[in-house]
Amino acid sequence: MLAVENLEVVYEGVILVLKGVSLKVGEGQIVALLGANGAGKTTVLRAITGLLDVHRGEITQGTVTLDGAPIHHLDASATVAAGIGQVMEGRRVFAEFTVEENLRVGGHTVDRGRVAAGLERVYGLFPVLAERRGQVAGYLSGGEQQMLAIGRALMASPRYLLLDEPSLGLAPRMLGQIRELLVEINAQGTSVLLVEQNANMALSIAEHGYVLETGKVVMDGPAEALRGDKDVREFYLGLREEGAVDFRQVKHYRRRKRWLS
């Protein structure tokens, strides 16, 4: 069980972004974490994976535990070794590397034999990557890059896989493919924490869901219940006006997000 408890995160020593977030991902589960721009979803993932440092962020309260053992003081490489893999927001493949080199970096922490096994597994899951193993990753389509980012995270065979908005910018068909792949990866024994703005997609495969709003969990429950919830539906249908939060304008790429697609 991966558990976040009462987590408080501050950036730059003053900007309080998470105000006591708690959530759980049980062994074998798919759990969705939903929320609008700037709610703090990515920050939750950074806190779990030891990447707050890089962003001048800091956990000021609360814990992250993996099967009861605290992991919030570990650095990024130690969380990878502990069995947590992540697919970062915006795919972030190494554009100059070939597909296979990208995957090999994903296998940095494991020995040779497991790298070979990992490559085989990833190429099995994503035949398109096998075809393009020698190609430079920057030339792949957006969907293929997302597959590569997922495959790269799988190379270390994580027990828990965290994905930050994998649906972002994908066409509906590609979205369907990614969705099925996540189900399959989960069926192969990896627990999944799926951060999404595409609530429909996330709740259609998750067991449980959390809704995060300005650093707090404002709602949580079984995915089924959330999907039926009137507030959630209204919220997801985009009745909120765009541009309510300023900070997100800082993002260095333009994008459009929708609650339902």
């Binding site: 994976t49 990447l51 650095d75 554009a95 940095h108």
Partner: peptide, 23 residues
């Protein structure tokens, strides 16, 4: 080499390299 690849990855994107477990 594996380490050489990690070095090149770090040169391209430090944060992503860290997320792959590169020290």
């Amino acid at each position: 080499s594996r380490i050489g690849l990690a070095m090149r990855a770090t040169a391209l994107d430090q944060e992503v390299a860290m997320a792959q477990g590169v020290k």
